[in-house]
């Protein structure tokens, strides 16, 4: 098993590495860039939802805060872009740290709504602090990212950058979940009370997971800003938050690869429908894409309620998260 697993991991790495060499189209590269960016956010959210058992419907706010911090530092303060990418995730992390302790005390739907409310609050602020953020019109003139003399201008270059960041995230996440802390998370996940009873400071650990998820969302946001070189508040709204949560749940809670798969499915499905609907129904408009998107989601959740990667019943799947369990139905 161990050997096979390593072999497969190796195959994935080779596949990702070779992709830009084989694929010429910057359209496909862009799809993979977006998948990579979303997967980084989803990894953080996956840690929070799957391991620490907390839900967030406001993750797009951290994604947006990262993007705006990077863009503002690069355009208004003329900081070098690379430095911005490293500094930008700090703001969302600090904000997560401040709001985390009170908010994470909430349970179930209350937590969903509190995070959702936070997301909308940040969205309104991005629109209203026009002097700093450019308001609803957005910020133009964001420079390209460069490391030394290499300028990340083409999508093929950017692909490597984003997927390296994703690879690093996955590596850390894999180590984290296998470490003692990972086991503690599992304990919180199966029963928070039991974990507390054996002396685990669950509140502090949940907070750490929340801060880490905000950091990763901020990192992805910063990378997004330097890729599109234009940002406005609209990609950081409630809908995006919901999409992030969808990615994690569809991929499979408490799995390492689930969030990556979820991100690939959401982005891939959108692009697939963009192509498939006009082919299947020549006179249909974009409306059908939306309808099918919704229906496919419902179907996935009906037939695989614990996500696509829940093939083998892990201990996680059996011990349904205490915080998310349906009381009765």
């Amino acid at each position: 098993m161990g050997f096979k697993k390593n072999l497969l991991l190796f195959a994935v790495v080779i596949f990702v590495f070779c992709l830009p060499i084989v694929v010429e189209s910057s359209y496909y590269m862009s799809i993979f860039i977006v998948i990579g960016l979303y997967a980084i956010v989803a990894q953080g959210l996956g840690l929070l939802m799957g391991w620490a058992g907390q839900v967030s419907f406001g993750q797009a706010a951290f994604y947006g805060l990262g993007a705006y911090t990077a863009a503002i530092l690069a355009t208004r303060c003329q900081w070098p872009p690379l430095l911005c990418v490293f500094v930008a995730p700090l703001l969302p992390s600090v904000i997560a740290f401040i709001i985390g302790r009170p908010i994470l005390k909430l349970r179930q739907h209350y937590l969903v709504l509190a995070t959702l409310g936070f997301g909308i609050f940040v969205f309104v602020m991005l629109k209203d602090l026009g002097a700093l953020t450019g308001g609803p019109s957005g910020l133009t003139g964001i420079p390209y990212l460069n490391i030394g003399s290499i300028i990340f201008m083409t999508d093929h270059q950017y692909f490597y950058l984003v997927w390296c960041a994703l690879g690093l995230t996955l590596f850390c996440m894999a180590n984290l979940t296998r470490s003692p802390i990972g086991r503690v998370f599992k304990a919180i996940h199966s029963s928070e009370r039991a974990a507390e009873a054996v002396g685990i400071d669950t509140a502090s650990l949940k907070l750490q997971a929340f801060v880490l998820s905000a950091f990763l969302a901020g990192l992805a946001g910063a990378l997004y800003a330097f890729w599109v070189t234009f940002i406005s508040p609209s990609p950081f709204g409630f809908t995006t938050s919901v999409e992030f949560a969808l990615m994690v749940v569809v991929g499979g809670l408490g799995t390492l690869w689930g969030p990556v798969l979820g991100a690939a499915i959401i982005v891939g499905l959108t692009e697939f429908l963009r192509w498939a609907v006009p082919v299947a129904l020549p006179h249909a408009g974009g409306e059908f894409e939306i309808i099918f998107f919704g229906i496919i989601f419902v179907l996935i959740m009906l037939f695989r309620p614990k996500g696509l990667l829940s093939i083998e019943k892990s201990s996680m799947a059996v011990n349904n998260p205490a915080t998310l369990r349906s009381t009765d139905a």
Binding site: L256, W257, L261, G268, L308, L309
Partner: peptide, 20 residues
């Protein structure tokens, strides 16, 4: 783990194939 990584790989390939 094996099945999972396989699924991820499959999905990536599928995305290319479909858009292709």
């Amino acid at each position: 783990m094996l099945k999972r990584s396989l699924l991820v790989l499959l999905c990536l390939v599928l995305t290319i194939a479909l858009t292709g």
